[in-house]
């Protein structure tokens, strides 16, 4: 692991990076699969009449926000697998930290995400810690924001992740 923070990484802090558009529009299949995975029977997601009355039409569960920007595992003509939260993987690679997990997650929700929306995102590295040793190994903590907007430019949410990249202890 690098003890000194490279200037290139220092320069990433506070910069908007990786503007992306979701590869899939918001759709009911994933909404139902998500609701099914956690046994969420909220009628907004299962009953069109309730959705129309309460939310002006079908919406997605707010906590699904990150699902819409995760790239396909494979796509035609794509040479390299795309990764979600690319800043996180950039940090692992550039800092020589082969393993990483997330510890904290904060999501602030804006306008509802609606079926048919095509979301846009960008990522901002907020901070990187000095080297630390945890039970997983030695590495650094970092905070990355992911900002989401819909096709009308309305803010639909901001997610803030705290990750820790590390080398396992001997």
């Amino acid at each position: 692991m690098l003890d000194e923070l490279p200037a290139e990484v220092q320069d990433w802090i506070g910069k908007e990076r990786y503007p992306e558009q979701s590869e899939i529009p918001v759709e009911k299949g994933y909404i139902w699969t998500t609701c099914s995975s956690v046994e969420m029977g909220n009628p907004i997601y299962w009953d069109e009449k309730v959705a129309e009355e309460l939310t002006g039409g079908p919406i997605a569960p707010p906590t699904m926000i990150s699902a819409w920007f995760r790239p396909h595992h494979w796509a035609p003509a794509r040479k390299k697998q795309l990764l979600p939260l690319q800043v996180h993987f950039d940090l692992k690679e550039r800092l020589g930290l082969p393993e990483a997990v997330m510890s904290d997650n904060t999501i602030t929700f804006g306008v509802p995400v609606r079926v048919g929306d095509l979301l846009k995102t960008h990522q901002v590295l907020r901070s990187i810690s000095d080297p630390k040793t945890t039970k997983l190994g030695t590495g650094r903590f970092w905070v990355i924001d992911v900002v989401y907007a819909n096709q009308n430019g309305e803010h639909v949410g901001t997610e803030s992740y705290t990750g820790v990249g590390y080398k396992r202890g001997e």
């Binding site: 998500t34 969420m40 569960p61 707010p62 997650n105 904060t106 602030t108």
Partner: peptide, 23 residues
């Protein structure tokens, strides 16, 4: 996060709307 949403909106009913979640 979805498990937390399920737990909380089962309690609130469908008009319950998440503003912020931090875990």
């Amino acid at each position: 996060a979805a498990w937390f949403e399920k737990y909380l909106t089962d309690w609130s009913g469908p008009k319950g709307r998440l503003g912020k979640i931090k875990f």
